[in-house]
Amino acid sequence: MNKHLIGFIAATLLSGAAFAGETPAVFDAKNCKADYPKASLLNEEQGTVSMSFLVSASGEVLDSKVEKSSGFKNLDKAAIKAISACKFKPGTKDGAVAQTWTRVDYAWAL
């Protein structure tokens, strides 16, 4: 494993818009990682990006957005791209599988 990969925090949190009876989608953080962008490594860029993903009832990412930037565009873009390609376990609403928003914090650390 590349020692420069990442210090990774995958925190799926209920968003402020989540209602009682709603469980957000989750993914396997151990098997879904992003490669550190080369330019970011050279410039010793680090930070945590907070993102939201709209996940379909089949576990595919339909939409994504950066909620809070890491402070570095390359790190933000790499995290969105990598997590968007991951397969999620769908969330539920009132006990039924459903399309839900989920939040993920991704920490880049050297």
Rank of each mutant, 00 (worst) to 15 (best):
N2D: 15
L5T: 14
I6M: 07
F8E: 12
A10M: 09
L13R: 12
L13E: 15
L13S: 14
S15R: 15
S15H: 09
G16I: 13
A17M: 08
A17V: 11
A18F: 08
A25L: 07
A25Y: 02
V26E: 10
D28S: 14
D28E: 15
K30S: 11
N31F: 08
N31G: 11
N31Q: 14
C32Y: 04
C32R: 02
K33A: 07
A34H: 02
A34E: 02
D35F: 03
P37E: 03
K38Y: 08
A39K: 10
A39Y: 00
L42I: 09
N43F: 04
N43Y: 02
E45Y: 02
Q46A: 12
Q46P: 00
G47A: 12
V49T: 07
M51T: 14
L54W: 03
S56P: 05
S56C: 10
S58V: 10
G59I: 04
E60T: 12
E60K: 14
V61E: 05
K65Q: 13
V66E: 05
E67L: 15
G71C: 12
K77H: 04
K77T: 06
K81G: 04
K81I: 06
K81Q: 13
K81C: 05
A82E: 09
A82F: 06
A82M: 11
I83F: 11
S84I: 08
C86L: 09
F88Y: 14
P90D: 12
P90R: 06
D94E: 15
A96M: 13
V97I: 15
V97C: 01
V97F: 04
V97E: 07
T100C: 11
W101M: 14
R103S: 14
V104S: 07
D105P: 01
D105W: 05
A107V: 07
A107G: 00
A107R: 09
W108Y: 13
W108D: 02
